[in-house]
Design a protein around this nucleic acid. Structure first.
Lengths: 339, 339
DNA sequence: CTGTTAGCGCTTTCAG
DNA sequence: CTGAAAGCGCTAACAG
């Protein structure tokens, strides 16, 4: 079948190629009648411009990349949704890349993006990332980049996060108000910006209420579920059993539920739990869980907005702004619903 | 900064452009020494070929599209993960598009793909889709398409699904074995292939055990959560209250939990619930929920595999194969854990 | 207002 | 084994 490209249209209409090209976009500069005829035929033949020819010529791809550690995680799914909303609105296409928390993959992916493939990058760091040479390279090549959630503090660029410190502070206070006196903190990957901020909120809240953070109550989880289970079980069986738990990621809260079930501990009777969680449905399933929910959709949307702003020619690079959106602390039934 | 392209490399090395191009890919046909020198310099200068120039010339984009109704849904997130795994392995890039269950958006998206933007499409239909002209157009243009989960039965192409009929049949039998005699069925969007198959499994299982499906126990939900809540509440308050519920989608099961909590009904005491659910963590939060879990990751992976097979020149189009993967029925604690 | 022309960066014949 | 040259489809000066 004959390819239906701009040349084809031009021949069919007895006008030049450039006239067609302009009629399809420039608008003013082309006779109204000619324009109409071109549009007409284009629609009739289902003409779609070849995006790659255009990208090659204009050095612009109308495509952005979203680079995230994983996707089977409600936070990132919702964030992508937010990104997509803006991208669709602006007529941009979205490439998705997963690092699987792996530094090597992260660098490889970034490398593949630095050849004009995308006009900008939205990124959340992998937990492994420490060296940021590949990210500096992005900036050096003039590709706008906006970080969200797991941001890179060493780089001068826009960041969108949640109020990790404040919400952790409040969550810890909430446990204190509930009468908890020994509150454990469960974390993963200590070299992520958010991990540090959340932990600081926890520590400071304890301090404010005249309590010291106890090292023995701070548990560093891993990505191995069985190890996490063992660690938490050990914590709950020890003589120093906590009466409150603050999980900095959902997964650790769920493992805690599992452990409690197996140990016949009741929640919130024996143990009160607060957790960061972006599973809006969690409370429907488990009313005893108090959650801190991040505005994931809005974070994605906001990050995309900032990125698109930087595409405007009046801008020079990405403004080094920092947007902080508020999480919601959803206090759950503190009585009843023993499990 | 000077652009580092193939021409640049050629000049630097005093060889021709085509020699560089070949050295970077062809391999055999170029002197070993020349090849080494080219590779060396390319690495040193961080050369990355411009993908769009290559796509334009080769009429191949090394990119595929995944078109799905929504992403904040664990099934699709996991499926994307599976797709990504294969794509990454093959050196392909993945564009994501969301239809938001909207027919208009679906056609618009498809239109944007039919101009060489992608080498193939992986798709799950929007709930609204009835007319399939846009999908036929995909085939007509020779773009391979593979459906997964919400497949299009009217089109001759590959499909990857789960055993919706069988698993529904078994789930219904499971409720019967638990002693349920009035089992309700909760569904959404009756014009999706999976909705029909699942419902048939339910009906046939009842029939096998000498029971008729009762229309009053079949509840058609919508995408409006409040309406769903009202419908389910009404069902549970009616004189004909069911003692078992089979939810064909997770969301309806969750709403049922909500209703039960508000009505002080206990699960599984007063009501046993089975639901399709791809939230692997659901049972950690709510041990009373029996789930049918689809192998979402594997579905995505399998669909991608089939798509990539069709890229091999020996193939002509996508083989019209149908792959059915098995779901897992996870029977939960039928005693205890009242909520 | 419209046509001519020169590329964007890369691949791929076709000659040497 | 290597080079010259044409061209993928589109855009954007520059001329008329």
């Amino acid at each position: 079948m004959e390819p239906v490209n701009i040349k084809h249209l031009a021949r069919e209409l007895n006008v030049s190629i450039s006239t067609v090209s302009r009629a399809l976009r420039d608008s003013h500069d082309i006779g109204a009648e000619t324009k109409r005829r071109v549009m007409e035929l284009a629609r009739r033949l289902n003409y779609e411009p070849n995006p790659y020819a255009s990208s090659l010529r204009r050095q612009k791809s109308r495509t952005i990349a979203v680079v995230i550690p994983e996707i089977a995680n409600n936070f990132f799914s919702l964030a992508i949704n937010g990104v997509q909303t803006i991208a669709q609105e602006k007529g941009y296409h979205v490439l998705i890349y997963l690092t699987h928390e792996d530094y090597g993959q992260e660098t490889a992916i970034i490398r593949h993006l630095l050849c004009g493939r995308v006009d900008g990058v939205l990124m959340s760091l992998s937990a492994q990332t420490e060296d940021i040479a590949h990210l500096q390279e992005v900036q050096r090549k003039g590709v706008p980049i906006v970080f969200f959630d797991r941001v890179c503090t060493e780089l001068e660029t826009a960041r969108v996060t949640t109020d990790d410190y404040n919400s952790s502070f409040k969550a810890t206070e909430h446990l204190l108000e509930q009468g908890c006196s020994r509150i454990a903190y469960l974390l993963i990957s200590p070299n992520l910006s958010i991990g540090i901020k959340r932990m600081q909120g926890y520590i400071d809240a304890l301090q404010k209420h005249g309590r010291e953070a106890d090292d023995r109550l701070v548990l560093q989880g891993s990505h191995d579920p069985e190890r996490n289970y063992a660690l938490i079980a050990q914590l709950l069986c020890s003589g120093q059993r906590p009466d409150g738990i603050f999980a900095s990621v959902e997964r650790l809260a769920l493992t805690t539920y599992q452990v409690c079930r197996d140990l016949h501990l009741s929640i919130p009777g024996d143990l009160k739990i607060v957790s960061f969680s972006n599973l809006e449905t969690a409370p429907l399933l488990q009313p005893s869980l108090t959650t801190i929910t991040q505005p994931a959709f809005e974070i994605g949307r906001e990050a995309a907005r900032i990125l698109f702003q930087s595409f405007h020619p009046r801008q020079r690079g990405v403004p080094h702004q920092q947007v902080i959106l508020n999480s919601t602390l959803m206090k759950r039934a503190s009585t009843g619903y023993s499990s």
